[in-house]
Simulated scan of single mutants.
Amino acid sequence: MPTPRHFSKKTSTTNMLNLKHPEAASSPAWRVGFLLLENFSMASFTVAMDVLVTANLLQNNLFSITPLSLGSERVTSDLGLEIYATPFERPALDLLVVCGGLRTPLKYPELDKLLADAADHGLALGGLWNGAYFLGRAGVLDGYSCTIHPEQRASLAERSPQSSITPASFVLDRDRLTAASPNGALEMMLALLKLQQGEALAAGVEEILAFSGARFRRVDSSSKKSMSVPLRTIVELMENNLEETLSLDQLATYSGRSRRQIDRLFQAQLGTSPSRYYMELRITKSRRLLQYSDLPLMDVAIACGFVSVSHFSKCYSAYFGYPPSREQRLGE
Rank of each mutant, 00 (worst) to 15 (best):
K224Y: 15
S310W: 08
V309H: 06
G213T: 07
L289M: 12
R218I: 08
L289I: 11
A303W: 10
F306P: 02
I262T: 06
A303D: 15
A252K: 03
L251C: 07
M279R: 07
S212K: 09
M238F: 08
S273D: 02
Y319C: 02
V205A: 03
L295P: 05
R282L: 04
V205I: 08
F266H: 01
V309A: 12
Q197E: 15
L281I: 11
E199L: 10
A203P: 00
L201N: 03
S273R: 00
T284Y: 03
K314G: 04
A202Y: 01
F211L: 12
T284P: 01
T272Y: 04
S273P: 00
Q291K: 13
R260Q: 06
E280I: 08
A203G: 10
K194F: 07
K285F: 15
L242R: 09
F216P: 00
Q250D: 09
E243R: 13
S275P: 01
D263R: 15
L201V: 10
L192V: 07
K224M: 15
P230M: 05
S258T: 15
A210I: 03
S273K: 00
Q269R: 03
L195Q: 06
L193K: 05
K224G: 07
Y316S: 00
R259F: 11
S258N: 02
F216I: 09
S258I: 08
A318V: 05
N240T: 13
R218F: 11
S223W: 14
S258W: 05
L190S: 05
P296K: 07
F216W: 09
S258R: 01
S293G: 13
E236T: 11
L192N: 11
Q267C: 10
S258Q: 04
R288Y: 14
R232H: 14
L201F: 10
A318C: 06
S317D: 00
Y316N: 00
L246D: 00
R276T: 10
P274F: 01
C304K: 02
R260A: 09
G256W: 11
Q196C: 04
S222C: 12
L295W: 11
S275Y: 08
A303V: 14
C304T: 15
L192P: 04
L193A: 05
P274S: 03
L265G: 00
M238E: 01
V309F: 11
Y254I: 09
C315K: 04
G213R: 10
L295C: 08
L281Q: 10
L281P: 03
S275E: 12
S286F: 02
L289H: 08
L231A: 03
T245I: 04
R217F: 14
S247L: 14
P230R: 03
V300C: 09
D294F: 13
E236I: 06
L290Q: 06
Q267R: 13
L237F: 14
S212F: 13
L251E: 01
R232K: 13
L289D: 04
L193G: 03
R215L: 08
L248F: 12
F312A: 07
R282W: 06
S293K: 04
S313K: 08
R282F: 12
A200G: 02
L251G: 00
D220F: 14
S293N: 10
Y319L: 03
L295D: 07
F306G: 02
V229Q: 09
